[in-house]
Computed example of a mutant assay.
Amino acid sequence: MTSNPLLPSHTLSDEKQVTSRLVAALQQEQDLLSGNGDADKIPDIINEKANIVASMATLADQRHKTLAALGFTAGENGMQSWIEQHGSAEDKQVWEELFALAQSARELNRLNGLLIGKQMAINQNAMNILQGKSNGSFYGPDGQSSLRSSGRPLGIG
C-alpha cells in the first residue's frame, strides 16, 4: 500500500492494527465479565479501551479530512467510493479487513454490555436480599420454601 499522506488509504493499516487491539481488549473484557479471570483487571481494560478508541478516532478523523479534501463524503461511504474509484487491490483488502474487524468489535461490545447488565441485575438482587427487600421466594433442593417467617409456628394436631 502506498504511504502517501495525501491519500485516504494512508491510515488504513494503522486503523486496522488499532482496531485489532480493540477486538483483543473486548475479548479479554468478555472473558473477565464471564468469570474467567481476575475481575480486578476490568478497570485496566476499560482504560485500555478508552485509549484505543481515542487512537481510532484520531486516525479516522485524518482519513475523513483527506476524503473531504478530495471531494468525497467524510465517512465510511466516502471511503468506500474512494476505494472503488481509486484504491489499489491492497487498499481494498485492508479496507474490507478493517470493516470486518469493526463489525466484530461492535458485536463484542454489544455482548459485553449484555454481560454487564446481567451482572448488575445479579448484584442488585444480592443487595436486595442483604437489605431484606427481596420480592422473590427461595426454594430448597426439596422444592420447599427455605424462607423462615418471623412468627411462631402453628401447632396443629
Rank of each mutant, 00 (worst) to 15 (best):
Q93E: 08
D44Y: 03
A25I: 04
K133G: 14
L114Q: 15
A24E: 14
I45Q: 02
N77D: 14
L32Y: 04
S149Q: 13
A69P: 12
K16H: 15
L154D: 15
N4H: 04
S104C: 00
K49Y: 06
N135M: 08
N77V: 08
L6M: 02
M1V: 09
Q27W: 02
H64N: 09
G35I: 04
R63T: 10
L108T: 09
A74G: 03
L114M: 13
G132P: 07
L32W: 03
Q93P: 03
W95G: 14
N36T: 14
G132Y: 01
S145P: 09
L7A: 08
G157E: 02
I42K: 00
D61S: 10
E107K: 05
S3F: 05
W82D: 10
L67M: 03
D31N: 10
P43E: 05
H10Y: 15
T11I: 04
I42Q: 01
I42H: 02
N109K: 03
R110T: 12
Q131W: 08
S34M: 02
D142C: 08
E48R: 00
S3P: 04
L154H: 13
A102R: 06
H86S: 15
E90M: 07
L67D: 03
D38I: 06
L115W: 05
L7N: 11
A57D: 14
D44K: 02
N123W: 02
K118F: 12
Q17I: 09
L114N: 15
R148W: 03
S149Y: 11
S150V: 04
T73G: 07
T58N: 05
R152K: 07
P141Q: 07
Q131K: 15
M79I: 06
S55N: 06
M127W: 01
Q62D: 13
R106L: 13
K65S: 12
P5H: 02
G71F: 03
S34H: 00
A105M: 07
R110E: 11
L115I: 06
T2D: 09
L111A: 06
D38V: 07
E107W: 01
Q93S: 10
D14C: 07
I129A: 14
P5K: 00
P8A: 01
W95M: 09
A25H: 04
S149V: 10
N36C: 13
S55K: 00
A24C: 07
R63A: 07
A50G: 14
E84L: 10
N112Y: 06
Y139V: 15
S81Q: 12
Q80Y: 05
A50K: 13
V23Y: 02
G143V: 13
V18Q: 04
Q131P: 14
G136H: 07
E107T: 09
Q30M: 09
Q119P: 08
S145K: 01
G87Q: 06
G87I: 06
V23L: 09
I45T: 12
R21A: 15
N125P: 07
S145R: 01
W95Q: 08
K133H: 12
G37W: 01
K92P: 12
V23D: 02
K16S: 14
Y139W: 01
G87K: 02
K65R: 10
